[in-house]
């Protein structure tokens, strides 16, 4: 047993992977379905009222998935990441680990990498489901755009996990870590309301897959990618620095 294997074991024995994969797969399957049949759904509840909507296109299925993944999926991801990254929540467990490693980074690195990978795999699985169902129900989508957009979405989620790691460096409560992390992540879209700023922020990557399957250019995301990578590294640096200073 080592710290890397410990994290994979944590993910599987606690059944957290089911919650993670389940939520993204659910929205990956339901998103395109609701996009395709939204008119019929609204009419069935409208008591004979005719609903006029444009005919759905395949990209709407992806958009529906992304909007749900960015909300419910992110909440679940942050909660699960907080449970893994708040390693001092039980001080006795923190003592067990801290007195046996040379650097706090040795504890944080496997937790960050495993969580970021798990969240990215779950998001990609949901995205594959959304791609498949959108294609079957509404027509084909550009694969390259979908792939690039999904990778950018994964990058954003890795950033979100890094934010959780940083917050966990200051908090010894899983709940507080999760709530503060969500608060921090919600700040970015609020700041990004101004378009000139928004294009630079990590939150800009959330909708990349939707934009790119509609023919958008990947070049418009390079700035956000650069900032996201820098902020991810910065968050991990803070996570280590803050965790090192904590007394148990």
């Amino acid at each position: 047993m080592n710290l890397w294997r410990l994290e994979w074991v944590r993910l599987f024995r606690t059944k957290r992977w089911i919650a993670l994969l389940g939520v993204y797969l659910f929205f990956g399957l339901v998103g395109p379905l609701s996009a395709r049949y939204i008119r019929e759904i609204l009419e069935s509840f409208g008591g004979g009222v005719q609903v006029v909507l444009e005919d759905p296109v395949a990209a709407d299925g992806i958009a529906s998935y992304v909007s749900n993944a960015a909300q419910i999926g992110l909440l679940v991801s942050v909660g699960i990441a907080a449970a893994a990254l708040t390693f001092d929540a039980k001080p006795q467990m923190g003592i067990f680990l801290r007195t046996r490693i040379a650097r706090v980074w040795d504890i944080i690195a496997p937790r960050f990498v495993v969580m970021a990978t798990a969240v990215a795999v779950a998001f990609t699985a949901g995205s594959i489901a959304a791609l498949y169902e959108s294609t079957v129900l509404m027509g084909s989508l550009p694969f390259a755009g979908w792939l690039a957009g999904t990778i950018l979405g994964c990058l954003y989620l890795a950033f979100a996990v890094a934010v959780v790691a940083a917050v966990a460096g200051r908090s010894q409560s899983v709940l507080v870590t999760a709530i503060v992390s969500i608060g921090v992540l919600l700040l970015f879209p609020l700041i990004g309301i101004a378009p000139q700023i928004g294009e630079w922020l990590p939150s800009y990557l959330v909708g990349a897959v939707d934009t790119l399957v509609r023919g958008g250019e990947i070049s418009e995301y390079w700035r956000a990618v650069g900032v996201t990578l820098a902020l991810t590294a910065g968050s991990l640096w803070l996570a280590v620095r803050w965790a090192e200073r904590r007394e148990l």
């Binding site: 047993m1 944590r10 490693i101």
Partner: peptide, 23 residues
């Protein structure tokens, strides 16, 4: 510590083995 605590889903053997590899 006076009240040791470990991840509850690990077995006793895994806890000691983890301590061995970390130490």
């Amino acid at each position: 510590p006076d009240t040791p605590h470990f991840d509850p889903w690990l077995s006793g053997r895994e806890v000691v083995d983890l301590a061995r590899t970390l130490g």
